[in-house]
Amino acid sequence: MKTIIEARQLSRIYRVGEIDVHALRGVDLTIAEGELVAIMGASGSGKSTLMNILGCLDRPTSGRYYLDGREVNSLTNNDYAAIRNEHIGFVFQVFNLLARTTALDNVMLPLFYDRSHRIQDPNTAAKEALRRVGLEDRMDHEPNQLSGGQQQRVAIARALVNRPSIILADEPTGNLDSRTSIEIMALFQELNDQGITIILVTHEQDIASYTRRIISMRDGQIIRDIAVPQPRRAAADLASLPPPETEMIKEVRP
């Protein structure tokens, strides 16, 4: 399998007032194309910092980071923006959709900043992405007209629309009830089956159990990195759950 992420001795030091906070202390990490990885750890363990660096939102204080075989440390801020645009899709805990903006326009947002012109028709591409997450009939809805699960699906569609090589999800199920969480994990598994590399940060063991590899962090270091030989299938778990009556009530009440 082709290596897509390779990090060598990443460290990140924040300066808070007079104190240096070591968020990362020499992290080595290799992730191959097509993996579905969970990064776990308590808050303050450095998992979000690692995620930000992997997603080119932040730069390490020291260490090397290769994305798709390309050394990115020395790139300019504009190159970072291009990488975020073309190679990476972000999914956040709080969905981070633009308010008072339709699902379709939200999904089209990354294409607005696409300078590579790989995607000819933003409208079609966005509709296709929404179809992939099962929201083709909610395209004209604004975030406040959608349930939490639906909002997160829009966010995933937005992450997909530029055909990125990696999706980075930071606590994607943190604001969702358990059934919706499993639905989202089923979607991630489905996308992963189609070949997309997915890295997600979570502190829930249940969620991590749907991935193929679990990396645990503590105090800015990786303390455990284990493969999951037989991940649970979220789709199968959903089938065994009772019908989603509660979810329907939730949709009626804002």
Partner: peptide, 11 residues
């Protein structure tokens, strides 16, 4: 959000 999906500072 705009920065995270690839907007440059100049955008």
């Amino acid at each position: 959000i705009r920065l995270s999906v690839g907007a440059r500072a100049s955008d």
